[in-house]
Design a protein around this nucleic acid. Structure first.
Lengths: 338, 338
DNA sequence: ATGAAAGCGCTAACAA
DNA sequence: TTGTTAGCGCTTTCAT
């Protein structure tokens, strides 16, 4: 039979509530009994039943992680894996568990969240991507559910917990650097602006262009689904009307896809840079300049911010900006243009 | 206040137990009351509290997923992500949840498993890799905990639930094909044999070599940590004593690492093939021939086999072999050797 | 076919 | 400092 708090109590010659207090390390228990109870717990190899504790506490020590289910994004990009590890390591250290769910659409996302909340399964929820007008965020806000966003919600930003890079600045830095290197016709290939992350990166691009007094050229800007294939096609179109001398993409695969189109078109020496420091960027020939967004840290801090809130640790910050590092490799250095 | 079974009962004019029976779809409830209760449930937007149900049932509808925490493996290789999605999709459909945990070592793995069992958090456990002498497997067996292995335990194979590829045959096929293509000095670069998967792949290599009447040559076989770097170093060593005309690696990065060493050494025209159909294999130049092990299916079936056992659905099989497909690309076709 | 009541294992308010 | 007792929300005998 499974050993419960009652068995321990009986054997230690105390009441169940005393045992419970010992577990909670209540300060009102004498050191003597504490010691005795602990010993019997060891002897009997007692482990608290988390489910029972959760029911009594109305707390589960479990966080729900919402993952998007786009093949390319999730599989080719280590981003999510890194985030998951960051979350896991911190959560474990704090005694929390993480459940994950893939959601194919915004509807499924909302449904999953609703289910988590109604069934009282999780104490808090982690969102790994966010749109400008995000139904999940709205729902969570309305129901007053603790949650954290990896990325940055556009609306009610001050009321929401979030952890993000400074994507505006990250992109601005790349473009500034490219300009410094002599480029003037820099193509931007990015995801759709409904996603905050892409909106920010485009903003960074725009700011760099403007700050450097370069004329804005719509023909150099493409917003599409951020996959290699789409980027490739987009660049093919672009080349019919204008030849860029550099490319920035919101992911390594995107940058590379676009670059491939320039090669095929015989437009040589185009510099290109991406985001996410994917394996592609290391293994590709030329190696790809890219921004490491420190996904594992994003996960780590997301867990931290959320757990702090759950435990009413109000001293902690509600938002964290994780640094992003631009890694220059061959694709923007001389190698590629000789 | 949160709506419970009691509220529904009162509003529907029945007892809590009746509501409970309606939820469980008990056959001894009249159709009329069933309908009425269902309606009130909708009206009140009632959702069962999973924790309470779990406590009463002594069942959590949750599976624990154990992940290794080696950087290279977990991040550069979409294997785990794909497995996770396969698991998630099937589990969700069956009403199960999945918790995941990264474990840095076999000890941490054992500790995590023990914790899951003792605290009664999960109904079943999923292992994503397995050694020849696996402490986790031993523990789970001893405690009679339901679990499934992705991969194949060496010991007590008939008593354990597992889902795996036929790694012997997969490797045998590659090597046979390379031999058919005229290669005779085929280097094998693989992980250590303490992991079942690598033991099997080496066996497949050996069988193909022997079947084709090729003399066994120890100098062509390397077992090391399966990373690009180690493979690169290993090949550098090998080239001092023998030049292979083809390379098989137990992962794309491994095959590529070894190949890189041949290029640097000026040994040209070496064919190479890997495993896992990673992004690297598609983006690399040349593209890499590789085995797609259908990781998402592995996950899917693992969940299925485990849940079947949990629900005592004894009609289902206890082990499943998922097909592995060899994808020939440039690295073993003429392109690379011209 | 339905209800009353006990219990899953733990916590916490109230007493002592 | 410790014990008693009444829940947490749901399931499940045992009656009726």
């Amino acid at each position: 039979m499974h050993v419960t708090i009652k068995h321990v109590a009986k054997k230690a010659g105390v009441s169940p509530s005393t045992v419970s207090r010992v577990i909670a390390d209540s300060p009102k228990i004498s050191v003597a009994t504490k010691k005795r109870v602990f010993e019997t717990m060891k002897e009997m190899n007692y482990q608290p039943n988390i489910i029972a504790r959760s029911l009594a506490n109305r707390v589960t020590y479990t966080l729900g992680l919402i993952l998007p289910s786009k093949d390319e994004e999730v599989f080719e990009n280590p981003f999510f894996m890194q985030v998951m590890r960051g979350l896991s390591v911190y959560a474990k250290q704090k005694g929390y568990y993480i459940m994950y769910n893939y959601c194919r659409s915004e509807e499924e996302e909302v449904e999953t969240i609703r289910h988590y909340m109604d069934s009282k399964w999780v104490d808090g929820i982690i969102l790994t991507s966010t749109r400008i007008k995000d139904k999940s965020v709205d729902l969570l806000m309305k129901r007053d559910q603790p949650f954290v966003v990896i990325g940055r919600p556009e609306a009610q930003r001050d009321k929401v917990l979030w952890v993000d890079n400074d994507n505006v600045m990250a992109m601005e830095n790349i473009v500034n650097r490219l300009i410094e290197q002599g480029h003037r016709k820099i193509a931007y290939i990015g995801g759709e602006q409904q996603f905050t992350v892409y909106r920010h990166r485009l903003r960074g691009y725009r700011q760099a262009i403007e700050q450097n007094g370069i004329d804005w050229d719509d023909r150099l800007v493409v917003e599409a689904e951020p996959t290699e294939q789409k980027a490739y096609e987009a660049m093919k179109q672009m080349l019919k009307i204008i030849n860029p001398d550099a490319i920035v993409g919101t992911d390594d695969t995107v940058a590379y896809g676009a670059y491939k189109a320039t090669i095929e078109a015989g437009v040589l020496g185009v510099a290109f840079a991406g985001f996410n420091n994917t394996p592609l960027s290391i293994y590709n020939n030329p190696t790809i300049s890219t921004v490491d967004i420190n996904a594992e840290k994003l996960g780590h801090y997301a867990a931290q911010v959320l757990i702090d809130q759950l435990e009413k640790n109000t001293t902690m910050e509600r938002n964290i900006i994780v640094e992003a590092n631009y890694i220059e490799r061959e694709s923007t250095l001389d190698y590629v243009r000789r």
